[in-house]
């Protein structure tokens, strides 16, 4: 046992395990500080909540090689300009509704969740909502009674009625509008957004 060279000894590897783990943890913590700053709402990657007062475009960036959200002119949701506090409250109500109604056990959002129903990341920009101006009302109508307004695109799969109140449905729409403005580094790839008025 004394023949074991130092680089194969128990002691050496105990220390190595500790140092490697600690080193990686330190790198992770450093990157976490940087990332948390970048993804705080209103910073470089994640929009401020009052972005729901604006039009959100999705355009190809030649510099980056993929699509990215672009914030446009005023386009108040449900015709009402909100203060930053009101906007945050509404988006937050929407996210709470999303969690309490267990949406991510059928849908993915930012690609995470279940695979039974379509991804919600770009729900706000999806061409399924016919035109830009009618979209928010169509979304509310659908959310409040998805069984009747089911659009299985030819299939039998329907969203169950989760009995959203009008406030909840509107808040979910606000949350999804805000989500669509997150810079997801080009995910989902090749996304074809809804026809955006004044954009083409």
């Amino acid at each position: 046992m004394s023949n074991v060279p130092w680089w194969a000894s128990e002691d050496f590897w105990r220390k190595t395990a500790i140092w490697v783990t600690a080193g990686m943890a330190v790198v992770l913590v450093v990157l976490t500080f940087d990332t948390v700053a970048a993804i705080t709402a209103g910073h470089s990657r994640v929009p401020a909540y009052e972005v729901i007062n604006k039009r959100i475009y999705y355009r190809m960036s030649t510099a980056r090689g993929f699509q990215e959200p672009v914030i446009g002119a005023d386009a108040p949701l449900f015709g009402k300009m909100l203060s930053p506090e009101e906007a945050e409250a509404m988006v937050s109500h929407g996210k709470l509704t999303l969690q309490a109604r267990n949406c991510a056990s059928c849908h993915t959002i930012l690609g995470n969740g279940a695979y039974y129903a379509p991804d919600l990341t770009k729900a706000w920009l999806d061409p399924a909502w016919a035109g830009e101006s009618a979209r928010e009302y169509l979304m509310v109508k659908f959310l409040m009674d998805p069984t009747t307004n089911a659009r299985g695109f030819g299939g039998k799969r329907r969203m169950p009625n989760l009995h959203l109140t009008e406030d909840e449905a509107k808040a979910v729409v606000a949350f999804l509008k805000w989500t669509s403005a997150i810079d997801t580094t080009g995910f989902p790839r090749n996304f074809t957004p809804i026809a955006q008025e004044g954009d083409r």
Binding site: A38, I39, G111, T184, T185
Partner: peptide, 11 residues
């Protein structure tokens, strides 16, 4: 952390 809004160095 590729696609959830996090910075690109994560790629």
């Amino acid at each position: 952390y590729f696609w959830i809004g996090t910075p690109e160095y994560w790629l």
